[in-house]
Design a protein around this nucleic acid. Structure first.
Lengths: 345, 345
DNA sequence: TATTAGCAGTCTAAGCAGGCGACTGCTAAC
DNA sequence: GTTAGCAGTCGCCTGCTTAGACTGCTAATA
């Protein structure tokens, strides 16, 4: 059971350890806090906290470091912080200066987040649940080859090469484009493949590809997120000289990171923190993940997250993730022709 | 001056050191080579090679390791190897199984290359020197907002959000698209902005954006290459416990790697190897780069490279890079409606 | 002159002992 | 419940020693 005083002590230990990465001795706590008690008393409390699992002692004659439980307590105590106005302004300013493209926004978010959180940032593109066709265009590349360009609701653009059995001219392709657009605009891949309009063989083939692209898009979960900030992690004392780093990177490069962390945030609003062993997958069990969904619920959402050592400056990371997610949400809402009121304004 | 015998010895030392990562003693050389001389003689030769700068001795009582010069000698002696037929087939097979998209090809190349070379692979998208417009399309997103989708020669598709001063309907946008296409198709950004046709204010604005996108594309040098294989590098004994890794990663994440290595291969055909201090930039001076251009010279080219420790299996890496570059060249040629004969078939 | 055997010399890596310093845990007093 | 004080523990650093791995040199040999 945690009392007011032991809570204060635990809190201080976590903050101090996050800042300095060395075990915190009782003397320092007595000096730095306003509890007005001696180191000996602090030690008694520390012994309690250790017994209850909030602290870990690397060895008998050393100070304490927080356990996952200790971090958890700390994180619960600091939630709903907001980013200083000043930084908020700086961030939105940066977004106003770049091209208006989803990819650019997401990539910028990753860069900013990595820099601000001094850790690995992971940001996925917003993904529609069941994407709707906005526009399709066929463009000749070579005699019998053409490019199918598909614009999906939410300003996503996908393309694919298609090879017909015979040479097809651009005018023919344009005619097909017009027909497909008028027939399919606004529909989902499901609806398109169910539609019963008359199609020439060429149109049929184009439709097949169109449906294929949209289905790929529908089934694409958490692919190729934007990743930044590896070097920050390598600079952390707990990773610099270990080979855990290598395992983590391999996970990432096999496109596994988002698959591992994203499900944790599904269906829940707000920022979530997963600490150490709370993670299900071994390679990140000495990491913490600060994660949040963004976008328009039920329509198009993405994931934004920070991965770092459990010893992570949560009090900065959490509001940063939160603010960036709300900025991204607003931008994405624009693409879908919606306006959402930011909760933070 | 290198004699036949000292050449053989140097060669063996390099191969052995690449394989084992430990200094090579004279005894081992005497045992493993067919020179029929004693370790003492080998030592004399080694002393020569050291004096001339081909070898380095980590300390007096240790075997030798190759210097950059030593690696250079070795690399010169093994160039124009080819990949075994079997592996070639395996690779092209893999390419036949994926979607026909440049991004997918390039990404697959990076993945394969990293795995085959067991090091960091860097592959940039092919870039046209002066890109030509293939097709442009305006698609309504929200009342006064639209998406400009631009297809560039070579199957690259770019898009950008545009905001008009007033709401514009999709039919109006379609009309503009048709006009712009008939006027601009096949032209470069230069030619488009010079063209003197009558334009409505809306068309003018669309043209501005179109030109903007194309110019961005023209000026985009070596941006956002596909990178894979970091974890292999972390596993290398020379990087596992050093912080050179961190510097290298930072360089990469500031989008600097290709800028650093790509100029080295410009205007030259074939595979190039840059060893250690031959690199101009400090963070990669203990790395080697195996690099090659691919694509259609004077039209659209990209870069494919492997970055790894100077102690790198060149005899595998060089042919792998070469073969993958020729595969990519052929694929890209298809997109531009050309056929090139592979030099390797 | 080129090669070689043999040995002394050099340097690393690994293991051990001792001392120092940093904290804690405990105890007994307040 | 709190505290001072002290004994005890443990990690870390230093210096020392030893074993082992190679080389460089020298003098003999073909």
């Amino acid at each position: 059971m945690i009392t007011t005083r032991s809570g204060k002590i635990l809190n201080y230990i976590v903050r101090q350890y996050i800042a300095k990465a060395v075990p915190v001795p009782s003397q320092v706590i007595a000096d730095a806090t306003d509890l007005g008690v001696s180191p000996a008393t602090i030690r008694n409390e520390m012994a309690h906290l250790e017994k209850e699992g909030y602290l870990i002692r690397p060895h008998t004659s050393a100070g304490c470091i927080p356990s996952d439980m200790g971090y958890r307590y700390y994180v619960e105590s600091i939630e709903n912080l907001t980013l200083p106005r000043e930084e908020q302004r700086l961030i939105s300013h940066t977004f106003h200066q770049v091209e208006k493209e989803v990819e650019v926004w997401v990539s910028l978010t990753a860069t900013l987040l990595a820099k601000l959180a001094q850790n690995v940032a992971v940001v996925s593109l917003p993904k529609s649940t069941d994407c709707k066709l906005k526009h399709v265009e066929l463009i000749s590349v070579q005699d019998s080859r053409a490019l199918v360009v598909v614009v999906i609701d939410g300003a996503q653009v996908k393309q694919m090469l298609i090879t017909f059995d015979e040479p097809v001219s651009q005018p023919t392709l344009s005619t097909i484009s017009i027909k497909l657009n008028s027939a399919y605009a606004g529909l989902t891949s499901q609806q398109i493949s169910n539609s019963k309009i008359e199609l020439s063989p060429l149109e049929k083939k184009a439709t097949e590809f169109l449906v294929g692209i949209m289905q790929t898009e529908d089934s694409k979960e958490y692919q190729e997120p934007y990743l930044e900030g590896w070097h920050f992690m390598l600079n952390q004392p707990e990773f610099a000289h270990s080979d855990q780093m290598s395992a983590l990177m391999e996970l990432v490069e096999r496109r596994g990171l988002l698959k591992v962390i994203a499900p944790l945030s599904l269906g829940q609003r707000g920022v979530h923190v997963i600490i150490g062993k709370e993670n299900q997958y071994e390679p990140i069990q000495n990491c913490s993940v600060v994660i949040c969904r963004y976008g328009i619920p039920e329509e198009a959402t993405g994931t934004i997250a920070v991965v770092g050592p459990t010893r992570m400056p949560y009090s900065r990371t959490i509001p940063t993730v939160y603010y960036l997610s709300s900025v991204l949400s607003q931008l994405v809402a624009g693409l879908y022709g919606r306006e959402i009121r930011s909760e933070q304004d």
